[in-house]
Simulated scan of single mutants.
Amino acid sequence: MATIRRRKSGLFEARLQRDGRRFSVYGRTETEVRQKLAELERKLAIDQAPPVGRVTVRELCERWLATERKRWKPKTYYDYRWHLEHHVYPVLGRVQLSKLTPDRLQRFFDSLSGRSANLTFRLLHRCFVVGIRWGFLGQNPCDRVVPPAYQAPPIELPDADALARLFRYCLESDDPYAGLVGLSLLCGLRRGEITALRWSDIDLQTGQLSVVRSGQWIAGRWVETEPKTRAGRRTIYVGEQGIRLLRRQKALVAQLKLQAGPAWQEHGLVFPGPNGQPLSPSRVAAAVQRICKASGVPPLRHHSLRHASASLALLAGVPLPEVSRQLGHANVSITARVYSHCISDGRRVTEAIERVLAG
């Protein structure tokens, strides 16, 4: 793995060791040096590739990661690498591509379960497609096995009365993260979007909230990127109750700042951690669970609040394209697929056809 440090001169340096050799790249900013590091890794992967006949699964995956890294968001790259290192490499990493038989690959997939099996299959399939393009494979080994059968479990949500009770609690609670839960339920924001939300993104006079970034903790570092999709950059109207939540939140943040004293790290975040730093996923999860319990609502994950927001809007008759824009989905078809159970139970379709046929 590479290391990055700031030199006394002010320049950033990234160091990488490969086969006993040390490589360094420099940049004026950490972002610049990370871009140069990604390019260096890509070149090294190409230059050091072994003869085609002896290429292993790990060597192909590493070349693929190095090539695709600059196209992916940091969290995507980190998650893919983690998955390969913890699931694929221990079992198949040293296997030469020429010896990767369908039986061996099938037994590997069968040893996994649930979402891990599904994600591993999709990762290796994509990697092998590139391997064919590069001439390492004649056909995709994943096309010769039975794909893992996985269906995401349905998300169970409380009824509308329970969600209304949860929202009322958020409006009145002094919990510093009640506003996070309430605003997530009201606007359907992703966790990365709401934890990276700053006061500069909000106009309390007009009730408009601009989603312009997403943030995640990656290997102990807070990393901010563009929203998940191009449509993710959007403006949302939070309404009177949203303004009420945010005004209350501003007062609660001021209290947190006083309590933290000199330890406070100012980032301008709407929902900061105890010392002003961005919230971790575990702290968000704990806050959602705590507030659900306090309001008498069954425990929910943060992403369930997003699903609840979209479901309530669709069941209330809000047009699908408007809900899709609010959620920041890349296209309406995603919204239709995920929330098909909310769009219609078929009754309105049948009744409309009956009216036409009956004249």
Rank of each mutant, 00 (worst) to 15 (best):
L119S: 05
G239P: 04
H329K: 03
S311D: 07
G179Y: 02
Q249Y: 07
E193I: 00
E13P: 00
V223E: 03
A285E: 08
A160K: 15
E32S: 13
D110R: 13
E59L: 08
L163H: 01
T67P: 01
G359K: 14
A260T: 09
L258Y: 10
P74K: 10
G215H: 01
G27D: 05
T101H: 04
I353C: 10
K36N: 12
T229F: 00
T235Y: 08
S311Q: 02
R348L: 11
P278I: 00
S295T: 07
R28W: 08
S111F: 06
D175F: 03
V318Q: 06
D19R: 14
A152G: 11
A164S: 15
Q255N: 11
E172S: 15
T350C: 09
P158I: 07
A251Q: 13
R355Y: 07
L119N: 06
E240V: 14
R71T: 13
A160P: 04
D174V: 09
A287D: 05
L171V: 09
G239V: 08
L189T: 00
V211S: 01
C342N: 14
A160Y: 08
A117Y: 03
E224R: 08
K99R: 15
A260R: 01
R168C: 12
Q265R: 13
R144Q: 15
R190M: 04
P147D: 12
G93S: 05
D47P: 06
R15G: 14
L16R: 03
L16K: 08
V55N: 04
T29P: 05
A162V: 08
A254G: 14
L256C: 09
S24L: 11
A178L: 09
T195N: 04
A14M: 06
A162D: 11
F271I: 02
W134C: 06
N140D: 06
L16V: 09
P272T: 02
R107D: 12
L209Y: 03
E30D: 10
P51F: 04
D143L: 12
W134L: 07
I132H: 10
Y237L: 14
A231G: 11
G207F: 08
L183P: 01
W82R: 15
L320T: 01
D203V: 07
L245T: 00
V349A: 12
I343D: 00
T31W: 04
R168Y: 11
G93F: 02
F109A: 09
D19E: 15
P74R: 06
V323R: 01
R133K: 15
R7P: 07
G182T: 02
E354D: 14
G114D: 05
R21E: 14
P51G: 10
A287L: 09
R325A: 09
A330W: 08
A45R: 01
L180P: 00
R107P: 06
L163V: 05
G328D: 04
K99M: 12
L166R: 06
V91C: 01
R54V: 11
R325W: 02
Q326K: 14
